[in-house]
């Protein structure tokens, strides 16, 4: 019996006059990997921020591990969920190592310095994301792909229970997309953890996610297992564009005509 990490009841969310969801119910259980798909402007990012407690919802309830969102202090919440944002570049020079180490902040005491274990943890994920050798680099000189891997490394250093990711494959070359999504699955699609990611590439979503949330952009949505939802009919409905399914090397692939 797996636990619910995130529970959303009857969530209503809108941006200006656009309705993102009217009645969204979600149960994200430990070990699962969810993908959010939808057309441009459907409110995927806003929904992700609302689930993270960074954007107010119109109504409804969001709870982590059985406790309502507003019951958490910001720091305690940062141990429950981590967020990978679409790149928001800092105007400030700082090193890659400092940025990745910032992920430890929710685990430190108020004036606490990082312990040797924290430094080790940061070094370990820098290696896992293939960034070793760049520790001392100014983050402003990194390429788009390196910066995206640094963001992923920061999230891995943070070690939250639930990872909320906004287009984790952005700026990554096709090979790195697969490597990074595999890495994220290894860390979060396991006991005690889960991940939820906004993706634009439906084929990546079908390959890596076991559950999907399809956001239409007019308040309608579909949520369920990938097996149930990844049909040409649903995806044509979602994107308003004809889609067909093909089998390539035993993997299901979508083809947008």
């Amino acid at each position: 019996m797996s636990r619910e990490l995130l529970r959303v009841d009857n969530l209503a969310l809108s941006i200006g006059n656009t309705c993102v969801t009217k009645h969204l119910d979600l149960r994200i259980e430990e070990g699962s990997c969810w993908g959010i798909l939808g057309p441009n402007g459907a409110g995927k990012t806003t929904l992700l921020h609302a689930l993270a407690g960074l954007h107010p919802a119109d109504s409804g309830h969001i709870s982590y591990q059985g406790m309502q969102l507003d019951g958490y202090s910001p720091k305690a919440l940062a141990r429950e969920r981590g967020v990978l944002f679409q790149t928001e570049l800092s105007g400030f020079p700082g090193t890659l190592f400092e940025t990745v180490l910032a992920g430890r902040h929710p685990h430190l005491g108020h004036l606490g310095w990082e312990s040797p274990e924290d430094l080790q943890q940061a070094s370990r994920v820098i290696e896992l994301t293939g960034l070793q050798g760049l520790e001392g680099r100014n983050t402003q000189t990194l390429s788009g792909g390196e910066r995206q891997r640094m963001e992923i490394a920061t999230l891995l250093t943070q070690q939250p229970h639930l990872a909320l990711l906004d287009e984790p494959s952005n700026h990554l070359d096709p090979g790195q997309q697969i490597i990074m999504l595999q890495l994220l699955r290894e860390h979060f699609a396991v006991a005690g953890h889960a991940l939820l990611m906004v993706l634009h590439d439906c084929n990546l979503a079908i390959r890596f996610c076991d559950h999907l949330l399809l956001l239409k952009g007019d308040g309608q949505h579909l949520a369920g297992t990938t097996r149930e939802l990844a049909t040409p009919e649903n995806l044509s409905w979602l994107y308003q564009h004809p889609v067909s399914l093909q089998q390539v090397d035993g993997n299901t692939c979508l083809h947008f005509r």
Binding site: A78, F92, A102
Partner: peptide
């Protein structure tokens, strides 16, 4: 300022990231 300094480090990463890492 020293008391604020850990939060200041995160504030440099941008308001959203700082909020996501537990800064009010």
């Amino acid at each position: 300022s020293l008391w604020l300094s850990p939060a200041l480090n995160l504030a440099l990463l941008g308001p959203q990231r700082a909020a996501a890492l537990g800064v009010k």
